[in-house]
Design a protein around this nucleic acid. Structure first.
Lengths: 114, 114
DNA sequence: TAACTATATAAGAATATACTTATATACTTT
DNA sequence: AAAGTATATAAGTATATTCTTATATAGTTA
C-alpha cells in the first residue's frame, strides 16, 4: 500500500503545485506538447512568440515560468537561447506525479474492497 | 517512438489544461494529497472548510473545480455530500499524463543520441 | 564604434482566480 | 409544517496571472 505523510505532502505540494501551475496554461501546455511531439526540437523566445502569436516579452515570460518550474532548460547557442526539456527534472516530476496518482488509485481500490 | 499530432494536442490540452489548473492550487493539491495518503477517506464540504481553514463557500467552490476537472466525484450520503476520487477519470488522466511525459522523455533520449 | 538582433525586465492594464458575505436550495429531523 | 443542517450560488472584493508597451541588457555584425 502506498502512503504519503503530511510532511511529505506539504514539501512536495509546493514543488508540484508550481509544476501544475506552469502546465495549467494553454499556451505553455501547447508549447510543451509541440516539443514533446517532435513538431519542434527546441524553441527560442522569438520562435515561440511567432508560432503562438504572442509578443516577445509574453513568450519570454512563459518560457521563464517553464524554466522556473524545471520543465525546460535554457541553452545559449549563437545568437539565440534555445529552450529544451529538462530531462533530469522531468524524470523527477514524472516520479512524483506517478506516486501521487498511484496513491490515489490504490486508495480507490482499497475503498472498493469494502 | 512516441508521437503526438497537433489535433490530438489541442484536444488533449483543453482537458489536461483543466486538470493541471485544478491541481495548480495549494489548497486543492493538499486536499488531493490528504485523500491520496489515506489521511481522510472522503471529504465533505464542511469537513474541508474546517480542516483547511476556509469558509464553507470557498470549500464548496474548490470541490466543484475538482469535480469539474474529473478528479473527484460527489456522492450523497445522508446529510452530507462526500467527495472521493473519480477512479475511472483518474486512470484516464494518468494515462494522458504518462503519455505526455513519456513523449517528452523519449524526445530527450532522441536528442541525446546525436 | 554604431547599428542590429535576441532576450530580459519594468510597469501598468486587462483578465482570471480565490476569497468573502449574503442568500438560496434541498434535505432532515423534530 | 417549522427549525435545523449541508451544500450551492450570487455578487462583490482582493489578489494573482497574463498580457501589453517601453526600455534595458548582452551579444553580434557591419
Amino acid at each position: 500500500m502506498m502512503r504519503i505523510d503530511s510532511r511529505t505532502s506539504s514539501l512536495i505540494s509546493d514543488e508540484l503545485g508550481e509544476l501544475f501551475k506552469a502546465l495549467g496554461n494553454v499556451n505553455r501546455l501547447l508549447l510543451v506538447y509541440s516539443l514533446a511531439s517532435g513538431e519542434v526540437e527546441r524553441i527560442s523566445v522569438t520562435e515561440m512568440s511567432k508560432c503562438m502569436g504572442l509578443t516577445q516579452p509574453a513568450a519570454s515570460q512563459h518560457l521563464k515560468v517553464l524554466k522556473t518550474a524545471k520543465i525546460l532548460i535554457a541553452q545559449k547557442e549563437g545568437n539565440y537561447i534555445y529552450y529544451t526539456f529538462n530531462k533530469q527534472a522531468l524524470q523527477k516530476h514524472k516520479k512524483t506525479i506517478d506516486f501521487l496518482f498511484n496513491c490515489a488509485l490504490s486508495k480507490c481500490e482499497q475503498l472498493e474492497k469494502r
